[in-house]
Design a binder for these strands. Structure first.
Length: 575
RNA sequence: GCGCCCGUAGCUCAGUUGGAUAGAGCACGAGCCUUCUAAGCUUGGGGCCGCAGGUUCGAAUCCUGCCGGGCGCGCCA
C-alpha cells in the first residue's frame, strides 16, 4: 500500500499514459515538473495537479483542453469524489472521506516506517560534517553544523539513501603543531617545572593538562631538553588522539556518531595529493604558474612565486588555486582536494556542511570535485550561519584566547540535547540565528520544541486516560471519523511528501516547521473539545467514537514521533 | 576592486524548487477556563515580497542592473 500522495502521482501518470494511448496527448513529453499538491486554498479541494499546464506547451496543446481530458480520466477513480478544472488549467480533486480514512489505517500499519521513502534508490551519499580542528573541546560555534549535518544525514536515510557520516580530522597543519607545543608545556609542568603563563599563540586550556600528565607518566623526562624535532610528531599524535576522544564524547552528548573519521595526515601519508595532482596534470588541469597580485589594496610584501596551480577558473572559480606551498608542502586545498577525490570513490554524491566563513572556498572545492570525478559525482556544500548566544537578551561574550568559550557540553548540560537539536533546526541553515537560553527552555507556544513535544505527550496521556476509563479501543472503526476529524488526517498525510521534498532540497528544517504545523492543528483539535464536549476524543458514553478518535490521535502521534526521530529529538511521553 | 549569502507584516521568521486571494509566531484589539493537561484556543487589524526592467499562461521564487546589510578574498586551517 502506498501513501496517498504517491498513489495519486501514479494515478496521474497512468491517466497520462492512457491519454497518450488514445492519441489525446503527444507521446514522450517530459513529465518531471508535474506535481500533486494540496492547493493553497482548501476550498479548491484536497489535491491539485499542474499537469495540464506543464505539459500543454511542449505537447503543443491548449492547457484547458488537456485539463478537461485528464480530469475525465481522474474522475473515474474510486477515491475521487469530484474533479474540476480551474484558472489556466489547474485540476482540483476532492477526495472521498474514505480515501483519507484509509490513510489513517496506513499510518497505523506502517508505524515508524510511515514517511520512509525509496526516492533515494539506495544511492550512497557521503555527508561530511563537524570536522572541527582537533585542538580542543567542541564549542557552540560547531554545534549548529553538527546538528544540521546529522539531521540531514538521517533525513537522507529516511528518504532511501545509504549515508556515510564522515568527520575530516585536520591533523596535518600548523595548528596541530601549536597544539603539540602547548601539550609539551603541560608535559614539563607535569614533571614539576613552573611554566608560568601559557605564552601567547599557544592553547591555554586546562583540558591539555591531563594529556601532558599522561605523556610525563609514559616517557618521564626524555623529551624535556631535546630539540622539538625529537618529540613534535609523537606529541602531536598523542594530543590529537586525546582531543578526538573529547570531541567524540561531546558529539555523543548530542546523539551524534560518525561512521568515518578521515585523517588529513593519512591522506598525505598515503600520497593521495600526489595521485590527484598526477591525474590533473595528465589532463592539463594543473600547471606551474604565477598568480597575479590581488587587486584593491596593495600589499608591499607581495612577491610573485611559481607554484603548481589548479585551473579552477575553468570550472567557474575566480582564480586558479595553488595546491602546494613554496616550501613544497601541500596547501590545505591540495590535501582537501585529494581527500574529496577519495570520498568520491565510495559514494554516489558528496555533501559538505561548512561554516559560512568558509563560503569563499566553495568554488575551488566544487571545481576540484568536478575535475577529479569528471563531473560524475554531484557535490553540494551546505553553508551554516553563525549562532548568536544570548542570555536574557544579552549576547554571551566569548573569548577563545582565555579559553573562556561556551562549550557545547555546557550548553547541552544546561538545556538538554533535545532542545539544542530542535532549536538548531528551526531556521534554514543559511540564515543567522539567535539562541537564547531563557527562550529555548520556555514552556510555551512561543517555543516550538516544547509545543511539538507537548502535542506528543498529550496524545500519550490520552491513551492512558482511555485505558483508565475502561474503554476498549482495540478495534477502532475509521468510518466513525467525520469531516472535522479528517482535516487532521489530511495534514498527517502530507508527511511523506514533506520528507521527500526536504531530502531533495537538503533542508532538514522543513521537518521542524511541518511538525510545528501538525502540532498546532492537533492542539486546535484538542481544544475544540473545550467549547463543544462532543468534539472531545474521550467520550465515556461512546466507545466507537472514542476508539476511532484515539486511533486518529495515535496516528498523529506516530507522525510526530517519526518526524522527531529524523531530527534526533526524543518524543516525550509525558511532560 | 572582485566573489558568495541575504533583503517578505512593527519584531523573529516560513513560503511545498515557477502556481490560484503571500503565511505563522510574537506584539496590538475582541472573545473564551466547575478542562479528555487553558503549558492554550477562536477571531480582527496589519504587506509597493528592497527598487527598476526582463523571461511566460503565471514570478516572493528564474535572469539583468541598481540600493542596502553580512561574510570572504595570494602559500592560514
Amino acid at each position: 500500500m502506498t501513501t496517498l500522495y504517491a498513489r495519486f502521482a501514479a494515478h496521474i501518470d497512468a491517466a497520462l499514459d492512457a491519454l497518450e494511448a488514445d492519441g489525446a496527448l503527444t507521446a514522450g513529453v517530459d513529465r518531471r515538473n508535474v506535481t500533486v499538491e494540496p492547493p493553497r486554498d482548501a476550498s479548491h479541494g484536497d489535491l491539485a495537479t499542474n499537469a495540464a499546464m506543464v505539459l500543454a506547451k511542449p505537447a503543443g496543446m491548449n492547457p484547458r483542453a488537456l485539463a478537461e481530458a485528464l480530469s475525465a480520466k481522474l474522475s473515474a477513480l474510486d477515491e475521487v469524489a469530484a474533479v474540476d478544472v480551474a484558472g489556466p488549467g489547474f485540476i482540483n480533486m476532492k477526495l472521498t472521506d474514505d480515501a483519507w480514512r484509509s490513510e489513517v489505517n496506513l499510518i497505523s500499519d506502517a508505524g515508524d516506517a510511515y514517511g520512509r521513502s525509496t526516492v533515494g534508490a539506495g544511492k550512497t551519499v557521503n555527508v561530511e560534517y563537524v570536522s572541527a580542528n582537533p585542538t580542543g573541546p567542541m564549542h557552540m560555534g560547531h554545534c549548529r553544523g553538527a546538528v544540521v549535518g546529522d539531521a540531514l544525514a538521517s533525513l537522507l536515510e529516511y528518504a532511501g539513501h545509504k549515508v556515510i557520516r564522515e568527520y575530516y580530522v585536520n591533523d596535518a597543519g600548523g595548528q596541530v603543531d601549536v597544539l603539540a607545543r602547548s601539550v609539551h608545556m603541560r608535559y614539563r609542568e607535569a614533571l614539576g617545572e613552573d611554566i608560568g603563563e601559557i605564552p601567547e599563540g599557544l592553547y591555554p586550556g586546562d583540558y591539555l593538562i591531563p594529556v601532558g600528565q599522561d605523556l610525563a607518566k609514559q616517557h618521564g623526562t626524555r623529551f624535556v631538553a631535546v630539540p622539538e624535532s625529537d618529540w613534535l610528531v609523537l606529541f602531536r599524535e598523542a594530543a590529537v588522539a586525546a582531543m578526538l576522544v573529547m570531541i567524540k564524547a561531546d558529539l555523543k552528548l548530542l546523539g551524534i556518531e560518525h561512521d568515518v573519521f578521515a585523517s588529513e595526515a593519512i591522506v598525505q601519508r598515503d600520497k593521495l595529493p600526489e595521485a590527484a595532482e598526477a591525474f590533473l596534470r595528465a589532463r592539463d588541469l594543473v600547471y606551474d604558474g604565477q598568480l597575479e597580485a590581488p587587486k584593491g589594496e596593495v600589499d608591499p610584501d607581495w612577491e610573485p612565486v611559481t607554484l603548481p596551480l589548479f585551473r579552477s577558473t575553468q570550472f567557474g572559480d575566480d582564480q586558479d588555486r595553488p595546491i602546494k606551498k613554496s616550501n613544497g608542502s601541500w596547501t590545505y586545498f591540495g590535501a582537501d582536494m585529494a581527500y574529496h577525490f577519495q570520498k568520491a570513490q565510495n559514494a554516489d554524491a558528496l555533501i559538505d556542511i561548512w561554516g559560512a566563513d568558509h563560503a569563499g572556498t566553495v568554488k575551488r572545492i566544487r571545481a576540484a570535485v568536478q575535475a577529479l570525478t569528471e563531473g560524475t559525482k554531484p557535490f553540494d556544500v551546505k553553508l551554516v550561519q553563525m549562532v548568536r548566544l544570548l542570555r536574557a537578551g544579552e549576547p554571551v561574550k566569548m573569548s577563545k584566547r582565555s579559553g573562556n568559550f561556551v562549550t557545547l557540553a555546557d550548553v547541552v548540560r544546561e538545556v538538554g540535547k533535545d532542545v539544542v537539536r530542535f532549536t538548531m533546526l528551526t531556521r534554514k541553515a543559511d540564515a543567522q540565528m539567535d539562541f537564547d537560553f531563557a527562550k529555548v527552555v520556555e514552556a510555551s507556544k512561543d517555543n516550538p520544541v516544547f509545543y511539538v513535544q507537548y502535542a506528543h505527550a498529550r496524545i500519550c496521556s490520552l491513551k492512558r486516560k482511555v485505558a483508565e476509563a475502561g474503554i476498549d479501543a482495540t478495534t477502532p472503526d475509521v468510518s466513525k471519523l467525520d469531516a472535522t476529524d479528517l482535516e487532521l488526517a489530511k495534514l498527517a498525510a502530507q508527511f511523506p511528501r514533506i520528507v521527500e521534498s526536504a531530502a531533495a532540497a537538503r533542508e532538514p528544517h522543513r521537518i521542524a516547521f511541518y511538525l510545528y504545523d501538525l502540532a498546532a492543528a492537533f492542539h486546535a483539535y484538542w481544544n475544540s473539545g473545550n467549547d463543544d464536549p462532543e468534539r472531545r476524543i474521550l467520550l465515556v458514553n461512546s466507545v466507537e467514537t472514542t476508539s476511532a478518535r484515539l486511533f486518529l490521535a495515535a496516528a498523529i502521534g506516530q507522525v510526530i514521533a517519526n518526524g522527531l526521530s529524523i531530527m534526533g529529538v526524543t518524543a516525550a511521553v509525558e511532560m
